[in-house]
């Protein structure tokens, strides 16, 4: 449980800084998005060792799920109940996609899986744009729908506050899920699969089942993040925004930076990455990516197991063991 304590403390500090220091809520929300993204992705990348290059598609479908719910239900008089319905639809759509992708692509291993998943993201985006699905390239704008459902004041509050709180909660839930998985049968199975899939099979582990379970869980959280951090916050969805491969790359960086498969890794990775990105663009506007990239390379070279992975090794056998998980 001590690992969870460390996690909760970091979350509490973030929340307190965001709520009490004036002007800090948006920067904290910015960090929280990366933390949540990392937590969700860690359940798949960290625990199975498989790299999904189409991960952003789950966030994208989640954001569409919320937008579709708002856009098609705002006249029904369901009122505030549309928000949970939207989250549910978001989760459902991401899960459906993960089942479809997982059933096909998870038969592949390593680099073959990674390459196959790149296509999912791009394919889905062009499908939406080309087939004029869900508004095609014009996307779905729900600014008006949200005002009609919640009223102007409340709609603003949802975009500036509720959406961020939701992301915060989803990130925390994803982290707690990771903790539970790690300590269950499923965690041992995934650990064996990550280290050596062939060995896992002859040990009697149903590798397909556990890989798909991790994939679905990860996609579920991704869908919720997309629905909250993008649709509710921006009040619109454009395919060119939500299918950006940049987010997948950022998710990979965060998980690797923090320590793949660790509980605290995505939190540390998300905050480190978010801070670097934010402050480098303030200090050196225009040059931030030029600095960020070599900096990230340097960190990964220094800590090949991620920051948390490195710390975990260092505290082994000391009284801090267990606090870093």
């Amino acid at each position: 449980m001590r690992g969870v304590h460390t996690l909760l403390i970091i979350y509490a500090i973030l929340l307190i800084v965001g709520l009490t220091v004036p002007g800090m809520w948006q920067p904290v929300a910015f960090l929280m998005f990366y933390v949540a993204l990392g937590q969700a992705f860690n359940i798949f990348l960290g625990l199975t060792g498989y790299v999904d290059f189409g991960y952003v598609a789950f966030l994208a479908l989640g954001s569409y799920g919320m937008a579709i719910a708002m856009d098609s239900l705002y006249q029904t008089g369901l009122g505030a109940a549309i928000l949970p319905i939207g989250l549910l639809l978001a989760a459902l759509m991401s899960i459906m996609l993960s089942l479809a992708v997982g059933a096909v692509a998870l038969r592949l291993r390593g680099a073959y899986f990674a390459i196959a998943t790149i296509g999912v993201n791009e394919g889905f985006r062009y499908l939406i744009e080309g087939a004029r699905l869900w508004g095609g390239s014009e996307g779905i704008i729900i600014t008006g729908a949200m005002r009609k459902i919640f009223g102007r004041e409340m709609a603003n509050f949802i975009s500036t506050m509720v959406a961020d709180v939701l992301v915060f909660g989803i990130g925390l839930l994803a982290a707690l899920t990771t903790y539970v998985i790690i300590h269950k049968r499923m965690g041992y199975a995934l650990m064996a699969i990550r280290e050596d899939e062939d060995a896992a099979r002859v040990m009697g582990i149903n590798v397909t089942k556990y890989k798909i379970m991790a994939f679905i869980t990860s996609a579920f959280f991704a869908g919720l993040i997309g629905a909250s951090a993008w649709t509710l916050k921006m009040t619109y969805v454009f395919p060119s925004d939500v299918f950006l491969i940049t987010y997948t790359v950022e998710a990979i960086v965060i998980v690797m930076l923090g320590g793949a498969g660790t509980l605290l890794g995505p939190v540390v990775g998300g905050i480190t990455y978010g801070l670097l990105k934010y402050y480098l663009s303030v200090i050196l506007p225009g040059f931030q990516l030029l600095i960020l990239a070599p900096l990230l390379v340097a960190i990964v070279v220094a800590f090949p197991e991620g920051i948390v992975g490195y710390l975990k090794e260092r505290v082994r056998g000391t009284r801090f063991e267990g606090y870093i998980l």
Binding site: D198, A199, R201, V202, M203, G204, I205, N206, V207
Partner: peptide
């Protein structure tokens, strides 16, 4: 394979 292990077979790779 995992069902076969349940039944009492195993393989040293």
């Amino acid at each position: 394979p995992h069902r076969k292990v349940e039944k009492g077979m195993t393989l040293v790779l």
